[in-house]
Design a protein around this nucleic acid. Sequence first.
DNA 1: CTTCAGTGCTTGCGTTTCGCAACCAGTTGG
DNA 2: CCAACTGGTTGCGAAACGCAAGCACTGAAG
Lengths: 146, 146
Amino acid sequence: MAANTPRSYCPINLSLEIFGDTWTLLVLRDMMFSGKRHFRELLQSDERISTNILADRLARLVAHGLLTKADDPTHKQKAIYSLTEPAIALLPVIVQIGAWSSRWVPDARKLDAASRKFLRELQEAGPRAWARRMDELRALHLGQGA
Amino acid sequence: MAANTPRSYCPINLSLEIFGDTWTLLVLRDMMFSGKRHFRELLQSDERISTNILADRLARLVAHGLLTKADDPTHKQKAIYSLTEPAIALLPVIVQIGAWSSRWVPDARKLDAASRKFLRELQEAGPRAWARRMDELRALHLGQGA
DNA sequence: CTTCAGTGCTTGCGTTTCGCAACCAGTTGG
DNA sequence: CCAACTGGTTGCGAAACGCAAGCACTGAAG
C-alpha cells in the first residue's frame, strides 16, 4: 500500500505524493503546534476529520517515515505518535503556507484574534523562531517519546 | 461552485482548500519554472494530467484569483494563462517543498542530473534568487501578458 | 465484581472525485 | 479543402471521501 512508483521524480511531485492532500498537513500542524500525539486528540481539530481518514493518514505518515508509533506506557491501549526529523523539517513549509494565506486569502481575516497574534509573532520572529520550535519538537519527539 | 464556507479559518487550512490537492501546485510549478501558459503546454507534464482535471484546476485557480485567463492575440482559439501576484507569492513555498523532498525523500535521487543541478543552484542561491525569479515572473505575467 | 467512560481503530454505504478515453466545434497553415 | 491544432466536454468504471455505527479492549470508580 505504500510504495507505488511515483508519477515522476520531480521533487515537487514527490512531496505532493506524500502530503499533497487535504488532511496530512493538518495532522502535522496539530502535532507541531497543538502538541497532539494521540488519536483521540487529533480527532478534535476544527476541521472535523473522520476516524477512518485519520487512521489512514497516520498509517501513511508512518509508512513514509514522517511519524513513528509507540505504546503509551500509561495506558496499554494508547498509541503515541512522534514526529521524525523529516517531519520536523517540514515546519518551515507549514509556517510559510500559513503566512501565505494570512496575506492573500480574504477569509483569513476571520481568524480569531489570539491565533492571528500568535501567527504574526511567529512570522515576525522569523526563521530563528522556527528553528527554536523545531528544537523543542526534537526534544519532545526524538528525545524519549519515540 | 467556488465559495463554499471553509472548514475552518486556520490559515493552513485555508491554503489547503485552495491548493491542497495533487495537481494544483504542479500546474503552478510548470507555469513558474517551465514558462507554460497554454492548455496544451500544461498537458505535457511528466505526471500526465488529464484534460478534464487540468480544465477544472485552471478554472479553480482563476476563481481563487491565482490566475487570469486572456485571449492569445496570435490565435483566436488560444487562451493564455497568467500568474497573479498571490500565485507568484507562492514561489518560495513551492521551492521549499522541492527542497524538502530532495533532502528527505529517497526517490529524489533518481532525478536526472540536469534538474538536480538546477535545483541545487536555486537553493544555494537562496531567497535572493527566488526574488529575482519572482520579479521575472511579474514582468512576464503582470506586465502585459494579462 | 460490575459498570462505564475512554482507547484506537474497522466496517458499511452512499456520494463525490479521479482517471482514462473518446469526442467536439472552431481555427489556421499548407 | 484538408490535416493538424486549439481548449476544452462528456461518459463511465474505479477509487477515495465522509458519515455513522460498531468493536475489542483497558482502567478507574462504585
